[in-house]
Write a protein that binds this DNA or RNA. Sequence first.
DNA 1: CGTATTATTGACTCCATTCAAAGATAGTGG
DNA 2: CCACTATCTTTGAATGGAGTCAATAATACG
Lengths: 237, 237
Amino acid sequence: MHTQVKCNNCSLDNICLPRGLSSHEINHISNIVKARKTLQRGEFLYRQGDQFSGVLAIKSGSAKLVADDSHGNEHILDILLPGELLGFDGISKNLYHCSAIALETSSFCLLPAHSIDQMITHVPGLARELFRHSGDKINNNNIHRVMAKRPAEERLAFFLIELSERLKTRGFSSKEFTLSLTRQEIGNHLGLALETVSRILKKFQQQGIIQVKNKAITIKKQDALRAILQPVESDLF
Amino acid sequence: MHTQVKCNNCSLDNICLPRGLSSHEINHISNIVKARKTLQRGEFLYRQGDQFSGVLAIKSGSAKLVADDSHGNEHILDILLPGELLGFDGISKNLYHCSAIALETSSFCLLPAHSIDQMITHVPGLARELFRHSGDKINNNNIHRVMAKRPAEERLAFFLIELSERLKTRGFSSKEFTLSLTRQEIGNHLGLALETVSRILKKFQQQGIIQVKNKAITIKKQDALRAILQPVESDLF
DNA sequence: CGTATTATTGACTCCATTCAAAGATAGTGG
DNA sequence: CCACTATCTTTGAATGGAGTCAATAATACG
């Protein structure tokens, strides 16, 4: 019998791992998942090259997923919001291929690597669930790769809409939010110069589409924002 | 006891699904995996929007993974070579998010979706294996996203090196190979105009790095090719 | 052999980057 | 609390890499 049950360690019911799992399965997970740890901005959830310690869930705050190339340039591959999972970059080689860094004071919990194998046997629903999440990451990545070909304004519009949607899913305001990212980081994530980010945000503001006050963003005209990315619209949501 | 055993349906031993599986497990898989089908260039292995039918393995030939946006533009997200797996885009929503299209006469086999759930229970080693492969795709995607920020020459150099490496892994020549892609398709995959692809291939040839004869590529100076992408080199291989 | 597709090459244009400098914000210690 | 510093942001001007347009050439295909 499938029920909506909290993961004992997780206040974010129904958006974290437990989805479509039986209460028996969730109890099993609750015993395995390690309770939250708290980190400050700039601290690492894990480091590129570290041994895979497991799949993590953000419980509060946010993080960035970063790949460092050999010249010390960082590439922000993903932004993680509360309830979202990370660590899939470590599965294939048992080493993390990216670093995960807190963007603000954040807490998270851990599904330890050494438990994953057992769980695949004992909690088949969870294996399916993890597999699904992993597939989600792939699809998401693909959308970003399609967007990477689009002009700067579309990329930024997409970034704002996607963030807004994801926050909404987690019960936060989709209209007003605070970016814990600098213009530099936004630009890095989108493959744009920080000046370009600044200019386009200003342009959107002048058009009355958004309100920008430092890192606080208010979306005034969601439709206008969506209209900017019409060309690839239907795929994305 | 773990042995190197062929999947009964697969001539590509050790590079396909069976890796680190017991012979018992592989026998189990052999009964489930559907034998090969053959397709001609341009035919679909699956279509964007189709119900997820399973994970596929290319046995011979090659395919492209394509996402169509709402304006009919196609985006080539991946190239699949013999022994490589595809279909992970269908796992999360039970619908394929991309289309897979044969680039030449190709054959493939199928691990059916309806078997995956059972197998997660009965062949835990396989669940782990699929999960690993899925993680591989994620890491690969990330490398491509990093490369997408680099200038055109590096992207093309990377494309050639990556292809060469992957062919080598599968026992094909890493120095000489035939691209089953048009300049248009290469450009699409790399986010470049087809004219740019043409110009850069010519430049590489003039530098003596490669030899281009229509779709046949010969790599003359692998080192020189690698040198072009020094800035991100160490991450990739 | 003729037609359609694909590839090459050149000229021009433009979007976004880079460079540069000034302005705002946040954080720190006196 | 204010001054001081470091970091981040804005804004302008100039540059350049890659795209677009256009015309020709080569190749593949029926």
